[in-house]
């Protein structure tokens, strides 16, 4: 066997993934310190800092509900978007708003390869041993949503769980961990 193939084989040695563990209830002072009013500089916030007058600035706001439809007050949501032009990574905990909202201020992503625009959300909380991925699509993108391959792969009755509804001044996106309206989560 030629030497380079042997080397390739060594490189393919699979390492076992480090297991995931819950974020727990006490992440606030570490991961979202300024939002939770702790004296430690935050590296990650919930507002995009790019200033661009041509961009469509939007707010995405919602709550997370458990299997008994109670809002969850100790979840952490991360947002990641990349349409090839604008990239944004945000983070927000649901423990500082009186009604346990999370909120992000960002730029609406553009369509990539004719697919509907979306942002990715990652959901962490006590009671989740492993985080959950979902996507936020937008209710005012009817044409692109209707032809989107990911949305069309979702059973019609569940599709609306990941389409944020445009309301006065923001897109509302509620996350249901369980039950009839359970949000579609993805294996990413």
């Amino acid at each position: 066997m030629p030497l380079h193939l042997k080397i390739d084989k060594t490189m393919n040695t699979t390492k076992t993934q480090t297991p995931s563990q819950t974020v727990g209830p006490y992440f606030g002072y570490g991961l979202t310190s300024e939002q939770y009013l702790y004296d430690f500089k935050s590296l990650i916030t919930n507002k995009i800092t790019i200033l661009d007058s041509n961009s469509d600035y939007i707010t995405i706001k919602g709550k997370i509900f458990d299997g008994e439809n109670n809002p969850i007050s100790d979840a952490m949501i991360e947002l990641w978007q990349n349409d090839g032009h604008n990239r944004f990574f945000g983070r927000f905990g649901t423990g500082t708003d009186a009604e346990n909202h999370f909120v992000f201020q960002t730029i609406k992503p553009k369509s990539v390869e004719n697919q509907a625009p979306f942002v990715t959300l990652i959901v962490f909380m006590r009671g989740q041993l492993i985080h959950s991925y979902t996507r936020v699509y937008f209710s005012d993108e009817e044409v692109l949503n209707a032809q989107d391959t990911v949305l069309n792969a979702i059973p019609a009755e569940r599709r609306n769980t990941i389409i944020a509804q445009k309301k006065a001044g923001c897109y509302e996106f509620n996350i249901y961990m369980q039950g009839e309206n359970e949000t579609v989560f993805f294996a990413v």
Partner: peptide, 30 residues
């Protein structure tokens, strides 16, 4: 290797673990 979403002995998972199967996703740029 990884834990399941639902693990009854950790009681907080009971109302917080997704109950429906995850959807496989073809990776996009994101």
């Amino acid at each position: 290797v990884q834990p399941s979403h639902l693990y009854l002995a950790y009681t907080s998972t009971i109302l917080r673990a997704p109950s429906k199967p995850l959807l496989l996703l073809k990776k996009s740029l994101t």
